[in-house]
Amino acid sequence: MHEFSIIENILTIVEEISEKEGLTSVSKVTLLIGKMRQIVPDTMSFAFEAAAKGTIADSAVLEMEFVPIKIHCNECGNEFIVKNHTYVCEQCGSTDLSVLEGQELIIKNIEGER
C-alpha cells in the first residue's frame, strides 16, 4: 500500500527535475531500492502506471535496481552481505552491527527528451 505514497513522491521529484532540465517527456525512471525496504516490484509498477497518467512521465518505464544489505560488524570489523535477514556477523557471531547499504530508496536517473 505504501508504494502509492512512494510513487507520489517520485512523480513530484521527476516533475521538478524535468522542469529544471527542460524535458518535454520522460521515457524512463530508474530507482535504487535497498533490500531492507519492503517494496513489491509489481505493486510499484502498477502504482506508477496509474499515478503517472496525465503527467510528464505518462508513458515512462519504471526500472528498479535492488541493492543488497551490506553490514559492518562493530565487534570485529568484518563486512558482509546479509542473507535471509540474518543480522549476525558471519565471522564472530556478534549482533552489534551497522547497516552500510540496503536502506536506499533513491531515484538514480531519469531519461527523457528535451
Binding site: 512512494i6 513522491n9 532540465e21 531515484i107
Partner: peptide
C-alpha cells in the same frame, strides 16, 4: 539521461 541520485 539525467543523473539524479535523490532520496525519494
Amino acid at each position: 539521461e539525467i543523473k539524479v541520485m535523490k532520496n525519494i
